[in-house]
């Protein structure tokens, strides 16, 4: 009864009542299911085999199973394709990168505001103030060219 291609009904779990087909028998206890249920391993005691059997090979792909289900008039489980995965960046590094981006943006704006201000009071700029403006201008350049790599650029400056 429990063999590759056997149609069955899942009787337990959140997929209960859904039709499935056995694509692989893992051992005496577990089988691999697919069909209206999610493609995953399942305990034999959680399925009730039906009288029908499909002609599929062991480990058939979801598309093959969906095609067979279509012939019976059943609809296999569909999942929306995920958006192309970004490069794996851990949450923490993402957060710190975003923070540094925001900081560099803020410093950029500050530098722009600073230069405008200073140009207004040309005669009154102190030496210290002038140096600060120069520093900010220097920071501005690398930050502008590579906003994403703001972490290394900042380190280089300081």
């Amino acid at each position: 009864m429990i063999e590759v291609g056997r149609l069955c009904l899942k009787i337990a779990g959140r997929d209960a009542g859904k039709k499935a087909v056995i694509i692989d028998v893992l051992d005496k206890k577990f089988v691999l299911l697919d069909g209206e249920v999610r493609r995953r391993k399942c305990n034999v005691s959680h399925i009730e085999p039906l009288r029908g059997k499909l002609d599929i090979e062991k480990g058939a792909s979801h598309e093959a199973v969906a095609a067979e289900f279509d012939k019976l008039g059943w609809k296999a489980r569909e999942t929306k394709p995920k958006a192309a995965a970004e490069k794996q960046v851990s949450k923490r590094s993402k957060k710190s990168a975003e923070k540094k981006e925001a900081k560099s943006q803020a410093s950029k704006e500050k530098a722009e505001a600073g230069t405008e201000k200073k140009s207004g009071h040309k005669g009154k700029t102190t030496v210290k103030g002038h140096e600060q403006v120069k520093k900010k201008a220097a920071k501005k350049k690398p930050a502008a060219s590579s906003v994403k790599k703001s972490a290394p650029s900042k380190n280089a400056d300081s």
Partner: peptide, 30 residues
């Protein structure tokens, strides 16, 4: 619970219901 008849039938009763349904389905398959 997140399953059919969750909060209405116990899991035992639900499984029995689906077993009956599976047996009923056998006649269709023939």
């Amino acid at each position: 619970p997140e399953r059919p008849y969750g909060g209405v039938l116990s899991s035992k009763a639900m499984r029995e219901e689906f077993r009956k349904e599976a047996r009923g389905m056998e006649l269709e398959k023939r």
